[in-house]
Nucleic acid binder design. Structure first.
Lengths: 341, 341
DNA sequence: TTGAAAGCGCTAACAG
DNA sequence: CTGTTAGCGCTTTCAA
């Protein structure tokens, strides 16, 4: 079994020497880009195998002006649980094409993001996925013009760039419809303080779905807090401390939902018997750990990553491929936090 | 501001042309590896600047047999919250040297890991960090011989390879000592079913620290479960359902601790008044979200990543640098789950 | 102080 | 069916 040192050192010429052919033949025997006598081919394959030869993609790339690398620009894509799935999804699809992913986080600093873009430029990555933590609208940095680019979890006004983002309205629609189907009529909304596309879309979906069911929206049932468990506890106070408390609450995310569990528990309310809860994200660490398990709408980060890279390959193969924008519908994952009223 | 297309297209020759010098001079003016007439240098710099020239590291690397890439081999390093910190730490240090990190996950499949190693070999990465999710002992794959290698969160018997891992004994020692300092004498241990170095080390530290305090170890206070919240609930049943229940529990990780919170709550036990709890990991998503906040020993994943890459650079700069093995002490993060008995 | 030219490992015209 | 050769973009001898 050849070790690293060997791999590093054995080149196409060594293989050629052992097989007794020219490097050209080795190249073609291996790539199959040109017919090669079966016997010769066999000899080359054996030689290559025995030497543990692995073609250096950088050398080939130098000629082809390719690096076989996809860059992922994130804010905290490496350090948050679900965002990491996006990189993992990107990696999966990249791997199917023998590509590799370089993921760079900005930590929410615009300067760092600019540096990261430059870094990807220097390294001549073949495509870029620009991913955001929270679904939002972004302006594509001018430096990124000219490289196959896809936005993940973000949208932009420029119709020439492809993007994929969750359908926020549908998230709320599906969640609220699920509660309505369980007979709930008084449904609260524990949302975030942040002013993102996610917040706006979900609020819209929440309101529309209620109205469509003939329920007048009670604005006092919409409460805002930081999107953390502590925020959720705060919202629980506002929502559950009143006589006409809701029988169900749709939470902006799983962390708020966790806070709601805590607030409910503190008041002796049982979930789901006394209060039904639906979250958004499906952070396994929370949604599976809560008791009962949290019914939640799963953000398909892995899929966002997969789609983005697939799209990049499309436009790499055929640069005339038109840009595409998609809002994906997210799946409701039923666990145990919703009951009939 | 030059866009991607420009960066991709402008080469050292373009700069040379504009500056009216040879490519050799451009190279040296930019790298400073050879004295260049200050005026000439100035001209080159200006030309390079105006064209937005960024040297292609692959081209230079081809000559230098360097790729300026560090590979990270993980199992689920991208998809779990804290492990991602390891990659982020690796990235940070890599970035300081204009290196970049390629992280590949095996999803716990040995075949995939072998493929990933081959992939890093093909790409001629300059160094490899092999990271494990749970501190364990590993055999270094033979293919990895000959590349600067550091194990993170893993150890091996071969003294020629560097590694860094948490000091598991000290984790338990610090946690238990913290509980002892709060007057607890009956301290349970909710550990995992897994048979890893982490489990063994923490058990040892737990026992030794109790004995050192003159407390005989009550084996019935050591309960095993899967290291999840559900497992923690299970352990809570075994631990808290008895008349002589412990006044404090040291949990193998934060997820088990969360289960313990739930079990305690179900029995009407308040934390920390009736039961003190200490976890391990410091998964913010849990430790900060629980109420009260979880006192826990933080696994320094970011530091593991940083140290590993720093070590690789050491041996890249001076290949004769001796291997180094370190057990790091982890910090106890005090929140609100421990009280005086 | 500067340049010409070789070569890193590979692919692909262009010959044969 | 196979080989020779010219680069890909850069660094670095070697020469001037």
């Amino acid at each position: 079994m050849p070790g690293w040192q060997d791999v590093q050192n054995v080149g196409i010429r060594d293989v050629a020497k052992v097989a007794g052919v020219s490097v050209t033949t080795v190249s073609h025997a291996l790539s199959g880009r040109r017919p090669v006598n079966p016997e010769t081919r066999e000899r080359v394959l054996r030689a290559s195998e025995s030497l543990g030869y692995l073609p250096d993609p950088h050398a080939g790339g130098l000629r082809a002006s390719r690096t076989w690398v996809i860059g992922v620009l994130g804010e905290a894509v490496l350090t948050t649980p679900y965002a990491g799935q996006l990189v993992a999804g990107a990696q999966e699809v990249a791997d199917e094409h023998s590509y590799v992913v370089i993921a760079l986080d900005s930590g929410f600093s615009p300067e760092r993001e600019t540096r990261n873009i430059a870094m990807l430029g220097r390294r001549r990555v073949d495509g870029v996925v620009m991913a955001r933590m929270y679904h939002q609208s972004v302006d594509v940095p001018a430096e990124l013009r000219g490289v196959p680019l896809v936005l993940a979890n973000a949208v932009t006004s420029d119709p020439s760039v492809s993007w994929i983002a969750p359908d926020e309205r549908l998230i709320a629609t599906d969640a609220v419809a699920h509660l309505l189907a369980h007979g709930h009529r008084r449904i609260g909304f524990a949302t975030t303080l942040d002013d993102t596309a996610a917040a706006a879309g979900r609020a819209e979906g929440y309101r529309d779905t209620l109205r469509a069911a003939g329920i007048e929206v009670d604005e006092s049932l919409i409460v805002r807090s930081p999107s953390t468990a502590a925020g959720g506890r705060h919202s629980a106070e506002a929502l559950l401390g009143r006589a006409d408390r809701p029988t169900a609450v749709f939470c902006f995310n799983d962390e708020i939902a966790m806070g709601l569990y805590q607030g409910a528990q503190g008041r002796g309310l049982r979930i789901p018997e006394d209060l039904s809860v639906v979250g958004v994200d499906d952070l396994r660490l929370i949604s599976e750990a809560l008791q009962p398990g949290l019914t939640t709408v799963a953000l398909p980060h892995r899929e966002l990553g997969r789609w983005s890279v697939a799209k990049i390959f499309q436009s790499l193969e055929d640069p005339s491929t038109p840009a595409e924008q998609v809002f994906v519908r997210c799946a409701l994952v039923e666990r145990g936090s919703v009951a009939h009223v």
